[in-house]
Design a protein around this nucleic acid. Structure first.
Lengths: 236, 236
DNA sequence: TGGCCAATTTGCGCTGGCGCAAAGACGGCC
DNA sequence: GGCCGTCTTTGCGCCAGCGCAAATTGGCCA
C-alpha cells in the first residue's frame, strides 16, 4: 500500500461531495481520525449482515455494492469510484450493513469509525446536510431504477445500465467507448434484474447491428446514441 | 378545516421522527413558520415535475407517492400516514419533485417553505441528522423492495405489499385484519409492478383458499401467516 | 505450446404473466 | 328503487424471457 501525504488527501476530500464547503481545518480534523486501508481485487470491504462500524471514502479503484437474497440471487445496487462515500446510510444507525461491498479492482480507501462520523456531523451541521443531500440524490436515482425495473423490458434496462456505466467509467478510445472495468454478462444481469443468458442474447444482437463490441468481461460501445433510443423504446 | 391549537401540534411534532430529541423551544420556533393546509380526498399535494418549494408533515389522513413514466405507467413508491414527512428529500436540493403525492383520504398537513427547513437544519444539526436517519431508513426499505422486484414472482410481491399495508394501516376486527383505506386491484398492481388482471387472479385464488376476503377497493386478511409463507415462497 | 478453466453463446422447450374483451358485481346518487 | 359508472372477474391467446444443456471461445499459467 502506497502512502499518501496530507496535502493529497486534503485535495481528495475537498473534491468529495460529502466534504464540500467545509473549511480546511475541519477536513484536517477529520483526517486525524481516518486511516487508509487497501483492498485487493475481489476482496470485500464488508459483507451484508455484519455490524456497520466503518465508513469509507474510496480514494482509488472501483467497488460494487450488492445485495444477496435468501434464495441466493445477487442484485447489484450500484458501482462506486474514487471520491464516493460508502456506508453513510448506516453510519449513524448502529445496525448491520444491508449490502456487501466488493473491490472489483484494487482499492484504496480512507476509513473512519462510524461513531467518529456521527460526532463530526453533530459538530458540523454542514457535514450532516451534505450527507443528506448525497443520500437524497442516491434515493432519487434508486427510485428511478425501481420504476424502470417495474415498467420496462429487459432490453431497455440493459441499455440504460450500459449508458450509466459509460457515464461512470466510460473511456473514449479510437475503437469506441470502452467500459473501463471487468464486466461480465452475469454482472450486467445482476444490474438489470435478468439472467446472464438473456444479457448474452441481447449483446449478441447489438453486436450484429454494429452498436457494440462484446468481449470477455468487456464491452465497447460504438453507437451510444442507439442505446439511448433503445432505452427510450424509440424506433431505430 | 379544523383549527389546531399549539399544544396539539407540539405533541404531534414531538412524536414525528424528524423532530425527535429537539427541545420544545425549537419545535415552537418551527411551528411559527408553518401553516396548516387541508387536501380533500383525491386532490394532489403536488405533481411530479413541479418546483419543490414546500415540505409537509402529514397530520391526518393517508397519501400516496407515485411516479409516472413517459409511457403512462404509474408506479407507487409508498403510502404515508400521520406523522410522516413528505418532501424532505428535495427540501434542500432546489429542484423539482420526482414524484406526485395524492391524498387518498382527506388530509391535513403542516407545511413549510423548503428554505425554512434548510435554515432550521443549518441551525440545529440534530434536525439534519434526524432527516438523514429518516431518509436512510427509507433508502434501505426501497433497496429491499428493489431486490424483491428483481428476484421474486408476482405472487410473492403482492403478499409482501399486503403485509406492509397491514403494518401501516391494518385494523384488527372480528372478521379479520382490514386494510383501513380504499385499495383497488389497480393500486396493488402499481405497488408491485404488475397488472390489475394478475392481481385480481391472485386475490381470487387466495380468497378461495380462505386466506383473504376481497371486496370492492377493500381487502380483509384472515390468515396473515399464510401471506408470510407465500412471500417467502415456502410450502403451505 | 498445450491444457485447463471460466466465460460466453445458442438451441430448445416451457411458463409466468400480460393484455384484450366481454361479462358481471357493487355502490352511490338522484 | 332504479340507473349508471367504476371496479372486478375471467376466458383466451400470446410472447418475452427463463433456464437447462451442450458446444465454443478465449485467456492464463505452467
Amino acid at each position: 500500500m502506497q502512502r499518501y501525504d496530507e496535502a493529497f488527501l486534503l485535495e481528495i476530500l475537498n473534491k468529495a461531495a460529502l466534504f464540500s464547503g467545509l473549511e480546511t481545518a475541519v477536513l484536517r480534523a477529520a483526517l486525524q481520525h481516518a486511516h487508509t486501508h487497501h483492498f485487493p481485487r475481489q476482496s470485500y470491504f464488508f459483507h451484508q449482515g455484519e455490524a456497520a462500524e466503518t465508513f469509507y471514502i474510496l480514494l482509488e479503484g472501483r467497488a460494487r455494492l450488492t445485495q444477496l437474497t435468501p434464495e441466493g440471487h445477487q442484485v447489484t445496487i450500484r458501482y462506486v469510484g474514487p471520491g464516493d462515500a460508502i456506508g453513510i446510510i448506516v453510519a449513524l444507525s448502529n445496525t448491520t450493513y444491508p449490502i456487501s461491498t466488493e473491490a472489483i479492482t484494487d482499492c484504496t480507501t480512507l476509513a473512519w469509525h462510524a461513531n467518529t462520523i456521527t460526532k463530526l456531523m453533530e459538530q458540523y451541521p454542514r457535514l450532516a446536510i451534505n450527507a443528506l443531500k448525497l443520500v437524497a440524490g442516491r434515493f432519487i436515482q434508486l427510485q428511478k431504477q425501481y420504476q424502470e425495473l417495474a415498467t420496462e423490458r429487459v432490453e431497455q434496462r440493459v441499455a440504460r445500465a450500459l449508458l450509466r456505466l459509460i457515464r461512470q467509467t466510460g473511456k473514449r478510445t479510437e475503437s469506441g467507448i470502452i467500459i473501463d472495468m471487468p464486466l461480465s454478462r452475469q454482472d450486467l444481469a445482476e444490474m438489470t434484474g435478468t439472467t446472464l443468458y438473456t444479457v448474452s442474447r441481447i449483446l449478441s444482437q447489438w453486436e450484429q447491428q454494429g452498436i457494440i463490441e462484446a468481449g470477455r468481461q468487456q464491452v465497447i460501445i460504438h453507437h451510444p446514441h442507439s442505446l439511448v433510443k433503445i432505452a427510450d423504446d424509440l424506433p431505430r
